[in-house]
Nucleic acid binder design. Structure first.
Lengths: 217, 217
DNA sequence: TGGGTTGCGTGATAGCCTCTAACGAACCCT
DNA sequence: AGGGTTCGTTAGAGGCTATCACGCAACCCA
């Protein structure tokens, strides 16, 4: 319709400007961290004056929230396509590491230091659930007959977070260890805690992954 | 001496004011995160005007560096006294978790999101080495006869970071898994990624610790 | 005990930043 | 072509870091 066409044109413009803003924001974050993000600097880069950006983002926190949303979406999509291409748990681990190394600050926007007061909006936690579901699926597909663990039996009664998922508790336990262990190696690597130690973080990551995939005796 | 006594008095005063500044800074960080730390607000709380603080800290980054130093010192001391009291690896893990839960933002000051440009001064990395040494000691004391792993043999040629430590490569491997796995659980817990999942992070932490202590078959 | 020195705290100021408000201009729809 | 919406602008308040020059008190030494 004509009325819709005009609205759509404006919406397109808005979306394009918003996209350019977030693009510049990602550059700033990659080089100086999220705390150094400046709306003023972005506006100056785009040839606009500072307050103009407030037509597109209500506040600085609003922009950062959008960046967090994009980060979650990017990770979810990365794992989704990897899974759709037939990747198993090891393949997902490789995808996760590649995604993290491509932009460490983006990883930390998802899994890094939280701001005490901040609570992510519902749509972001929904994306987080999708990420977890993808990983739980891969865990369930990998080992339908893994050994029983004490924590696994505990999870039988505490699997609300996996509601609607038919994976056995051992698969949930495997997911949790997969998540926490790989995050442990990755976050310390990205934060630079291995630099100067003379060891290759990739090999430590691989060793942890091997341990995760090898069934316990 | 008299001359020394006067200097010492001034030094005492300086140290006391510096201590009060860092104390207020810790309060601010605990409630609003490190990025929200404001020298001005601290000065106003202490009844002074803003620029006065620059007599005690050269810059905001300087104050934050001092807080990072205190955090490292606090963790090193916690682990040192635990070790001196006879704690084994499990005891050190418990100490570590207690220290982290006591002040999550302090933990993130050590192991959280890094600022891209920042490099810690040498004395801080020295404290980091002491922390690692304490943990490696406990790992070496725990299992002198653990099984050989591929990554362990890799570490035989890449143990520069453990220079001067006589621990076998398997103990170094155990330390690395201890460090990364517990950090993985802890950092996700402190960041709130388990809230709303209906599971007790303490049990997941305990399960990971059990797995670390149980020898692989 | 008095004078020079040292160090501390202050206000003023520059230069950033976020964010609000009011105004002009461009645009779309009727 | 007119009316309403949206955009970008400038002006400005209020916050911050950081520097500077200045009073002032404490201290050291003769």
């Amino acid at each position: 319709m004509a009325t819709k066409g005009a609205n759509a044109s404006r919406e397109r413009y808005r979306a394009q400007v918003r996209a350019e803003i977030t693009e510049r924001a990602w550059e700033q974050i990659a080089t100086a961290g999220a705390s150094a993000l400046s709306l003023n600097a972005i506006a100056k880069q785009m040839g606009m004056s500072g307050p103009a950006l407030y037509r597109y983002f209500a506040s600085r926190d609003d922009l950062i929230t959008e960046l967090v949303r994009e980060a979650y979406r990017s990770l979810a999509e990365t794992l989704r396509t990897a899974s759709a291409t037939g990747a198993d748990l090891a393949g997902l681990a490789h995808s996760l590491r590649g995604w993290a190394l491509a932009d460490p600050q983006r990883y930390f926007l998802v899994y890094g230091t939280p701001v005490p007061g901040y609570h992510a909006p519902a749509d972001i936690t929904a994306i987080s659930s999708e990420i977890m579901t993808t990983l739980v699926d891969a865990c369930a597909a990998l080992a339908p007959d893994s050994a029983v663990t004490p924590f696994g039996t505990y999870l039988e009664d505490h699997r609300d977070w996996a509601a609607g998922h038919s994976a056995p508790p051992e698969a949930l336990h495997r997911f949790l260890t997969f998540w926490t262990r790989l995050h442990g190696v990755l976050s310390l690597e990205l934060a630079g805690h291995f630099t100067g130690m003379g060891l290759d973080p990739a090999l430590l990551f691989a060793a942890e992954l091997d341990d995760l995939l090898a069934p316990r005796a």
